[in-house]
């Protein structure tokens, strides 16, 4: 169930040159699953900005965002104590109730990494043994490595230029480290989603992005075609099952 509320910024700090972590205080009672997102209203902008939930507890929500345009630049300039009007509890989120799954593989690319954090916590709490692969372009961009390690799971880093971790793409790390897994969860840029969709034989769930009008299912701005019909990425997604996805 989606809700609107006013949230107070209690932390807004850079993690890398262009990626920031923001912790917001307010009602979190309607967040039901990792992989859901929030939609943030910004002064002087008509459309809200969708950002994935990285982590949450009874009173706070953590998001991690990259500065890519005017809206995210504005967010980066905000101070502790400032307030934001946010729609919370949007999207379906990841389903962790998967039959026979014991060793899920979590793959995050760039700012696709954050939703994997909340997912990893949930899977661990449910007694699963997840492995995490995080993909970046270069070592300078890496964030949240220690945080994932602190959760107590195996974490692999890849960088396209080889300045950190395995050189290449997340698929290279999967091969070179002989990672065993029985299910896939992924969030990242479309080429990564495509490669994993093609290359991975197990079942899985992939999280998608699209430009949004409302973020709560009303405008049909974010539709995509799937093998099970037309879906709204904001409401029926952003997480889709591997079996239903088509990249035509």
């Amino acid at each position: 169930m989606q809700k609107q509320g006013i949230y107070k910024i209690i932390t807004n700090v850079p993690l890398t040159k262009s990626v920031y972590k923001m912790v917001l205080e307010g009602d979190t009672s309607n967040i039901t699953a990792p992989g859901q997102f929030i939609n943030i209203e910004l002064a002087g902008k008509f459309l809200r900005r969708p950002i994935s939930i990285c982590d949450w507890n009874e009173t706070t929500i953590t998001v991690i965002y990259k500065v890519v345009g005017e809206g995210t630049r504005q967010m980066a300039g905000m101070k502790e104590g400032e307030e934001l009007d946010i729609l919370v509890g949007l999207g379906n989120g990841f389903n962790t109730n998967i039959d026979k799954m014991k060793h899920p593989l979590l793959v995050g690319g760039g700012v696709g990494v954050p939703p994997m954090y909340g997912l990893a916590k949930k899977l661990l709490a449910e007694g699963k043994r997840p492995t995490m692969i995080m993909g970046f372009n270069t070592a300078e961009e890496v964030f949240y490595y220690e945080e994932f390690v602190a959760l107590g799971l195996d974490v692999f880093v890849t960088t396209v230029d080889g300045t950190g971790g395995t050189k290449g793409f997340v698929t290279d790390a999967m091969e070179q480290n002989g990672i065993l897994y029985d299910y896939l969860y992924c969030c990242g840029p479309e080429p990564m989603l495509k490669a994993l969709h093609r290359g991975v034989m197990t079942g899985g769930q992939l999280s998608f992005e699209e430009r949004m009008g409302c973020g709560f299912g009303a405008c049909m701005g974010c539709s995509c075609k799937t093998l099970t019909g037309y879906k709204r990425i904001c409401k029926d997604g952003p997480v889709m099952y591997k079996e239903e996805i088509t990249f035509e």
Binding site: G44, K45, F46, L47, R211, G213, M220, G221, C222
Partner: peptide
């Protein structure tokens, strides 16, 4: 898609 474009405060 994309089917939606931002137009600043105006729409």
């Amino acid at each position: 898609t994309p089917r939606i474009a931002e137009c600043g405060a105006s729409g």
